[in-house]
Amino acid sequence: MSKISQWVSLLILGMLFAVGLSGCQPQDDAWQTIQRRGVLRVGLDPTYPPFENADTGELEGIDVDLARALGETLEVEVTFVYFGFDGLYDALATDQVDVLISALVEDISKTRDFAFSDPYFNAGQFLFIHQDAPEKSLTMADMENHLLAVELGSEGHVQSIEWSRKINGLEIKALPTADDALWLVTQGEAHAAMVDQISGRLYRQNFPELAMVAEPVTVEPFAIVTRIDDQSLLEAVNDGLAQLTEDGTIETILHRWLD
């Protein structure tokens, strides 16, 4: 190989190396820092039972149990820091906490500054039917000439109006509360009620004759939030959530609080 060819080869190799380097993200040390500290700082607004509530003097709820389980899986201690709902993202942005676990819905408009984990709960609208109903797998598409109970003015009511344009004979009965809508189903006076999963399952605690249709009508995914630069932490959180899903821990926590 001539001297010129060697120089050209070296130049090309150097350029390839430089291009390769430029494609690499610098590894953040967020997760390493938490591991060294041994503590994961969790921000939440403890005013939203059954996800997080401190009104009884003790912090408790689905997100609290989830955070503790995540801490065990990731082998770090968990501390909770309280904020108002409006201050949660600012608290995370200013490094007062490492993550937010506070029944927060994925929000694409915030993804410049924050990252959302894989979802751990769908707070969207579901159909609740009587478990003795002949149609066990009722969906909105099957609601032709059926009576649907909803809470007046709620998201379920909005969705039902939209569905009434797509299917024939959908009769909507709007009642003052979600409980009223569900009660109508227990009495056999409505084929189904469309309410959010939380309201429906809480009501079902006292009315086991109600069944929740597995297929959601809408999706409102709750996720854990990290800062966008803390990708190593996000990966750890997602790994932890995957493990907690696989071993049934998340389902057990949800069952404990909602059923």
Binding site: T47, F85, E151, L152, G153, S154, H157, A174, P176
Partner: peptide
């Protein structure tokens, strides 16, 4: 939201 009411 702490300052909200029911939809109805």
């Amino acid at each position: 939201w702490t300052r909200a009411v029911k939809p109805g």
